[in-house]
Computed example of a mutant assay.
Amino acid sequence: MARLLFSFALLVGLSGVACGQTAPEIAPSGKLRVGMIAITVLGGVAEPVARFIGQKFGVAVEPVMYPSPDAYLQSFGKDEWDIAIGPRVLAPADKADSTADLWVISLVYVAAPGKEFPDIASVDRTGVKIGTIRGAPSERVLAREIKAAEIVRIPLSPTIAADAAELLRSGKADVFGADSGVGYPAADALPGAKIVPGAFAMVRVAAALPKGRSAAAQAALATLVDEAKQSGVVQKAIDAKGLKGVNVATK
């Protein structure tokens, strides 16, 4: 145990040195602009993680919140942020270098009152209408995997859980497929609605640097991502929001 604690302390010490050396490259303006999506399960968790990273770099953090997944995706390559924290699938490999995963989010179905789906496989059938968030990772998965059901898309908004519940209540969708940060609140907001057992996919969330940053800068950010997971920063951020179906990444 003593050796383990010494190794962790040594890692933290070395990360401090590395961050001090790379801070001017990563945050040249003297503040760390962090791109993220304005939704609890993403930006809500990313903000405290960003503050931890900024503290390690010795700079103030300026959140750059995007109102939708598409707006976040379109920000890559435009010098609007210094690092981004969001779905790995929305970080183009030709425009960014991503770290290891920070946390993972279950994609779940919420069934409308009176609609019965014993498992996720039973959702994809003729006549079923699946609601989802336009441009979100959930839509990408559904557009790729769904063969028989109809997909009904709605925009992301600050009231997305209520919007999803209303879509189900109105009969415009039989189920709503989204990240668990939307799915569980939507189910809670609509009496009789329930989560279909299982997850139809997972969203992997990572930090990213703009393409072209040095190997030292990438290594420094990678070290802080690992430290944020190992020290409990990510878990505390998840717990503070009371999120279900969200877990610290193991790799």
Rank of each mutant, 00 (worst) to 15 (best):
residue 66 Y to F: 15
residue 202 M to D: 04
residue 50 A to I: 00
residue 33 R to S: 02
residue 239 D to T: 15
residue 130 I to E: 06
residue 199 A to L: 03
residue 203 V to D: 14
residue 192 G to I: 07
residue 21 Q to K: 09
residue 247 N to R: 15
residue 129 K to L: 02
residue 151 I to P: 05
residue 54 G to R: 08
residue 150 E to P: 03
residue 37 I to V: 14
residue 203 V to C: 07
residue 150 E to Q: 15
residue 152 V to Q: 03
residue 70 D to E: 15
residue 196 V to S: 12
residue 72 Y to I: 02
residue 169 R to Y: 03
residue 81 W to T: 06
residue 56 K to I: 00
residue 177 G to I: 10
residue 119 D to R: 10
residue 43 G to C: 11
residue 108 V to D: 10
residue 251 K to V: 11
residue 70 D to P: 05
residue 195 I to A: 00
residue 29 S to Q: 00
residue 132 T to D: 04
residue 230 Q to R: 15
residue 179 D to M: 14
residue 62 E to Y: 01
residue 189 A to K: 12
residue 205 V to C: 09
residue 227 E to M: 13
residue 225 V to M: 03
residue 177 G to A: 10
residue 66 Y to P: 02
residue 231 S to P: 10
residue 49 V to A: 04
residue 30 G to Q: 00
residue 84 A to L: 13
residue 224 L to P: 11
residue 224 L to R: 12
residue 143 A to M: 15
residue 224 L to I: 10
residue 192 G to K: 04
residue 10 L to A: 13
residue 63 P to I: 06
residue 168 L to P: 02
residue 52 F to W: 09
residue 171 G to V: 02
residue 121 A to T: 13
residue 240 A to H: 12
residue 32 L to F: 03
residue 115 K to E: 11
residue 85 I to K: 06
residue 56 K to F: 02
residue 8 F to W: 13
residue 42 L to D: 12
residue 190 L to N: 05
residue 113 P to D: 04
residue 95 K to T: 05
residue 65 M to P: 10
residue 141 V to N: 01
residue 247 N to S: 15
residue 135 G to L: 06
residue 196 V to G: 08
residue 36 M to T: 12
residue 42 L to N: 08
residue 235 Q to R: 14
residue 173 A to T: 09
residue 203 V to I: 15
residue 16 G to Y: 11
residue 34 V to L: 02
residue 80 E to F: 01
residue 140 R to T: 14
residue 85 I to A: 11
residue 229 K to H: 12
residue 48 P to W: 12
residue 31 K to P: 01
residue 156 L to T: 13
residue 238 I to M: 10
residue 173 A to G: 04
residue 174 D to F: 01
residue 177 G to H: 06
residue 134 R to F: 07
residue 17 V to Q: 07
residue 85 I to C: 07
residue 37 I to H: 06
residue 85 I to S: 04
residue 71 A to R: 12
residue 207 A to S: 12
residue 90 L to D: 05
residue 152 V to N: 02
residue 186 A to R: 08
residue 77 G to Y: 06
residue 1 M to Y: 09
residue 243 L to E: 12
residue 110 V to N: 04
residue 176 F to K: 03
residue 105 I to E: 11
residue 174 D to S: 03
residue 84 A to T: 07
residue 171 G to N: 05
residue 187 A to Q: 03
residue 232 G to T: 11
residue 149 A to L: 10
residue 30 G to V: 01
residue 8 F to K: 11
residue 180 S to Q: 10
residue 39 I to K: 08
residue 82 D to Y: 01
residue 88 R to I: 08
residue 66 Y to K: 08
residue 105 I to T: 11
residue 143 A to F: 09
residue 35 G to E: 02
residue 92 P to A: 10
residue 212 G to T: 01
residue 172 K to R: 15
residue 166 E to S: 07
residue 38 A to K: 13
residue 28 P to I: 00
residue 181 G to S: 07
residue 44 G to Q: 05
residue 7 S to V: 10
residue 177 G to Y: 08
residue 251 K to H: 14
residue 101 D to L: 02
residue 187 A to V: 05
residue 218 Q to Y: 01
residue 82 D to Q: 05
residue 248 V to R: 10
residue 237 A to Y: 13
